[in-house]
């Protein structure tokens, strides 16, 4: 049945914090098997949107479906198909990498033997074996991203939602993560990730949505959105940035 349904479908998602509207009605369809980039400047509402889409933050209005299952009405099935790597959220970081993977695996109701085998494989591929029994709290930022990704991948989800997976990651690890995600999509999975790094999005994504001020400004396949120009040009134009004139901040140069 997952063939008829989009991997992720959002309708009218909205959220306000006190007086500030963070997300003002987002509609989005992520086709199954796509590599979807959610672009936006800082504070555009990317994290809020993704949190509402995966069941971490209750929306004020709107609905979210994962492969046809309502995230808020039927969370058990929706969450079972979903792998999530939130940003700015701690892991249970007083466990070692292997312990954390075992925890996530068992929490997903997996067979212990399968957990052991996949955990070993993931630690190996992500080059986290050297860390041994170091606690995750002592990992570097890049290693934390990698173990977070491993936790999201462990149970073999059909949809992977990643918030800023390339933030604070060195080029070597970034290439590794790109590789793994690419293989995952080739194998029939769907990836949605947020970012504000244009190069990564241009290189990876089949589809793009640009979010600003809590609304979707542009949406479509990568080629539809950027047309003849570079993605960065489109992005800056849509978001409405400004460029420095050279007059201000003169005291910075002596």
């Amino acid at each position: 049945m997952s063939d008829q349904h989009p991997a992720l479908s959002l309708r009218g998602l909205a959220k306000r914090f006190d007086t500030k509207v963070a997300v003002a009605g987002v509609d989005l369809d992520v086709p199954a098997g796509s590599f979807y980039g959610l672009l936006g400047p800082n504070g555009a509402g990317k994290t809020t949107t993704l949190s509402m889409a995966v069941g971490l933050l209750r929306p004020d209005a709107g609905q979210a479906w994962v492969l046809g299952y309502d995230v808020w009405a039927d969370p058990v099935r929706a969450k079972g198909l979903l792998g999530v790597m939130p940003d700015g959220v701690r892991l249970f970081d007083r466990l070692s990498g292997a312990e954390l993977l075992a925890y996530h695996g068992l929490l997903r109701g997996m067979d212990p033997a399968v957990v052991d085998q996949r955990a070993a494989e993931l630690l190996d591929v992500l080059a986290l074996n050297d860390a041994g029994r170091t606690l995750v709290v002592d990992y570097s930022a890049g290693m934390k991203k990698k173990i977070g990704l491993a936790c999201a991948l462990l149970h073999g989800p059909r949809l992977l939602v990643l918030d800023e997976p390339f933030e604070a990651v060195d080029p070597v690890s970034a290439a590794l993560i790109r590789d793994i995600l690419h293989r995952y999509v080739t194998g029939g999975g769907t990836v949605v990730f947020s970012s504000h790094v244009m190069e990564v999005v241009e290189r990876l994504c089949s589809h793009v949505a640009i979010l600003a001020d809590g609304r979707i400004k542009q949406v479509g396949t990568l080629d539809q959105v950027r047309g003849e120009r570079s993605l960065e040009e489109v992005f800056v134009e849509v978001v409405g940035g400004r460029t420095a004139t050279g007059e201000e901040l003169s005291w910075l140069s002596r």
Partner: peptide, 16 residues
């Protein structure tokens, strides 16, 4: 310096 936690990784579940 963190206590030396290197050493063999072993089976993940047994470690937890």
């Amino acid at each position: 310096p963190s206590r030396d936690r290197r050493g063999t990784v072993g089976e993940a579940v047994a470690q937890l």
